[in-house]
Design a protein around this nucleic acid. Structure first.
Length: 658
RNA sequence: GCCGGUGUAGCUCAGUGGUUAGAGCGACGGUCUCAUAAUCCGUAGGUCGUAGGUUCGACUCCUACCACCGGCACCA
């Protein structure tokens, strides 16, 4: 039986970080689990390399798109190999074999009448390659906040609207198509709300896969990217069984819609088999904050690996985070888990068990009976762990295995083999204790292999087991498979205790170096995180006004009429979380009516009587039916609340800023 | 605004209509000595978000409210 699973293909506008690693580590774990269950497993990952954003990033780095994406794609590939992840296929959207599959998917949909040509005039966000319906010229992008550009484009459209019923039927008949259930409910709500046709081509972009028989069109990112799941295993078979459809798409929760709605609809339209399951995991937070570029709190995997080892990272991610929910990363918690669970728990049990067999039995695992209670415990726990694995409940798997570890620790103390060793009449009992401990350790190690492949292999070898863990099958986790008479391997410490005071600064230093290295590869100069936002976000749409040197002229600035205003009234706008309706005195005949998105940051009463900076000559517009004549100036960073510009000294109402 | 989720010991979480609400980690005390100053044993007195209600009895059921999170809408 084959089992085909995928990670998302990662967008090469950023270098790999712990979030990418989280998904891919989980995929590697599932891959090993399925392997242990006897499947012929294939795991695919890759890189998503097309789009205007990449074109621009490449240009900024002084490289051709191809050279740029080659470089970053190689970074991802290297990251997985550094982390010891077993990747079977690494697919790139720039791979020629991929383009053929995309065109084929398109032509099938076209032939079946699910694609038509239409045209779109409106606002477009270059950064997200997103059409922003209902936006006006100059409006910012709903997603990233960067200014949108006005475009008129002829596009190919996918008739997504026609698939509402079939999608709902899919979710109905296959309740576990989307997991966890909260994600399924969200998708259901979204689809029930009605689906709009989807534009699947772009003429504004050159860097992409050309649409068949078209000069100007290239495929839109999702039509292109999702197809890698098929192109990576195109027409491949294992023992006569086709790899497609995928058994599992492992994704992050931010891309559920594309995988659970668009992708099955594309495949239905093309008359191709659908993937069997989509599992969306949660986000990794940094000390309960969202990790983001603008906060500068993104963590990389490599520094952790270098200081504590890959398995420490894998263990932490799988144990601390409930798979499917958001979880939080911190260096303290990482080192805490490492020391208390890995060093004191698993590592120490291996160490004491092997040491005793070495000292008392010259490194040979004794023959004879084993303790029935421990055997029973091991059997039950193995069952529990395998069931939890089946549901991808990795933290429960680990809890179960650790309860076996503590049962064995207790058993050892209760039986005090060091006392038995001194008594010639107790040699049989000593054999029993040593064998029991070793066999329990073997089973725990086998169960842990999918999550801790490196350390499991070490313990396995130290136990003297020869068979590669990759060939271990779940049936061999039954009690009693350990051979008496087997010679131990060479002992070594698996998880040396870490001193948090040393390890954490070490990781943080390596982190700084890694960030610098990645920035260099991306062709960006290292700069302090706080300064990054402005250069990042401003460039696209100001391009026309900005001169070659990146400066505007005094005349350009003069066009903006900034005035000091006094807030006279402020109230919340009904039905909008973020909006406040203000009346602001600019020294004119009447206070101006201005609607501002400040409600999350300020209470209405905090604003009344406050002096603010107003863009006085902004074109009027209506928001929620309220006239807005101007804009309140506030400092804002992506993901943060706005902070009003204000004055330390008193200034008269109506004064111009220049 | 609509829909959904969460709120339990310092931290991470489990939990059931009913005697004194649990686990792991951390902390403190003790113990063994095979072991990575590890193990093992003992100790932790937390208004089970707030306020009501149903009930003989609620942490567990209902209602309202608060906080946080997510989706959608709105908006930026």
């Amino acid at each position: 039986m084959k089992y085909y699973l995928t990670t998302p293909i990662y967008y090469v506008n950023a270098a790999p970080h712990i979030g990418h690693a989280y998904t891919t580590i989980a995929a590697d774990t599932i891959r090993r689990l399925k392997r242990m269950q006897g499947y012929d497993v294939v795991l695919t990952t890759g890189t998503d390399e097309h789009g205007q954003k990449i074109e621009r990033a490449a240009a900024a780095a002084g490289k051709s798109p191809k050279a740029f994406t080659d470089l970053i794609s190689a970074e991802f590939k290297k990251q997985w190999s550094d982390l010891g992840l077993h990747i079977d296929r690494f697919q790139r959207t720039t791979n020629p074999s991929h383009a053929a599959v995309v065109r084929d998917l398109f032509e099938r949909c076209l032939k079946n009448g699910h694609i038509y040509k239409g045209s779109y005039t409106g606002q477009y966000c270059v950064s997200d390659e997103l059409y922003v319906n209902d936006a006006k010229p100059g409006d910012p992008c709903p997603d990233c906040g960067r200014p949108t550009e006005t475009v008129t484009e002829e596009n190919y459209y996918f008739r997504l609207s026609a698939f509402q019923d079939r999608l709902l039927e899919l979710y109905e008949t296959q309740p576990d198509f989307i997991l966890p259930e909260t994600r399924r409910n969200e998708v259901l709500a979204f689809v029930k709300g009605g689906l709009q046709d989807l534009s699947i081509s772009r003429t504004t972009i050159k860097w992409g896969i050309p649409v068949p028989n078209e000069e100007k069109h290239v495929f839109y990112v999702w039509f292109d990217a999702l197809s890698t799941y098929m192109s990576a295993v195109h027409d491949e078979k294992i023992h006569g069984e086709s790899l497609w459809p995928a058994d599992l798409h492992l994704i992050g929760k931010e891309i559920v819609r594309f995988h659970a709605i668009y992708w099955p609809a594309f495949l239905m339209a093309a008359g191709l088999p659908l993937p069997k399951r989509i599992f969306a995991h949660g986000w990794l937070l940094f000390e309960n904050d969202k990790m983001s570029k603008s906060r500068g709190n993104i963590v990389r995997a490599t520094p952790i690996q270098k200081v504590l080892g890959t398995d420490a990272l894998r263990y932490f991610l799988m144990r601390e985070v409930v798979f499917g929910q958001d979880g939080s990363f911190s260096y303290d918690a990482l080192v805490g888990r490492y020391n208390s669970d890995l060093a004191n728990g698993l590592g120490n049990l291996a160490s004491r068990t092997l040491a005793m067999i070495t000292q008392y039995r010259e490194g040979v695992i004794p023959e004879g009976a084993s303790n029935q209670q421990i055997a029973q415990v091991a059997t039950v726990i193995t069952e529990t762990a395998l069931e939890a694995y089946e549901r991808f409940e990795f933290s429960k798997v680990l809890e179960a295995v650790w309860s076996l570890i503590s049962a064995v620790d207790k058993y050892i103390v209760d039986n005090a083999p060091w006392k038995l060793a001194k008594n010639p009449d107790e040699q049989d009992r000593l054999n029993e204790v040593l064998y029991t401990a070793a066999e329990a350790l073997r089973i725990a190690t086998g169960l842990l292999w999918p999550i801790l492949p490196e350390s499991a292999a070490k313990i396995w070898a130290q136990l003297g087991c020869r068979k590669p863990l990759d060939d271990l099958r779940t049936a061999e986790l039954n009690w009693g498979h350990l051979e008496g008479g087997q010679h131990l391997g060479i002992p070594s410490t698996i998880f040396p205790r870490a001193d948090a005071k040393i390890a954490i600064p070490q990781m943080q230093e390596l982190e700084v170096a890694e960030v610098a290295r990645q920035l260099e590869i991306l062709g960006k100069k290292p700069e302090p995180p706080a300064a990054k936002t402005s250069s990042d976000s401003a460039e696209p749409s100001l391009a026309k006004a900005i001169t070659k040197d990146g400066f505007i002229t005094i005349d350009d600035f003069g066009k903006v009429d900034l005035r000091v205003g006094l807030v006279k009234t402020a109230e919340r706008v009904k039905g909008a979380d973020k909006l406040l309706h203000l009346h602001v005195d600019l020294g004119e005949a009447e206070p101006r009516s201005i609607v501002a998105g400040l409600a999350l940051a300020y209470k209405p009463e905090e604003l009344v009587g406050r002096k603010v900076v107003v863009v006085a000559n902004l074109a009027p517009r209506k928001l929620r039916g309220l006239e807005s004549n101007g804009m309140i100036v506030a400092a804002s960073r992506e993901g943060d609340l706005p902070v009003l510009a204000s004055f330390l000294e008193d200034v008269p109402v109506g004064a111009r800023l220049k």
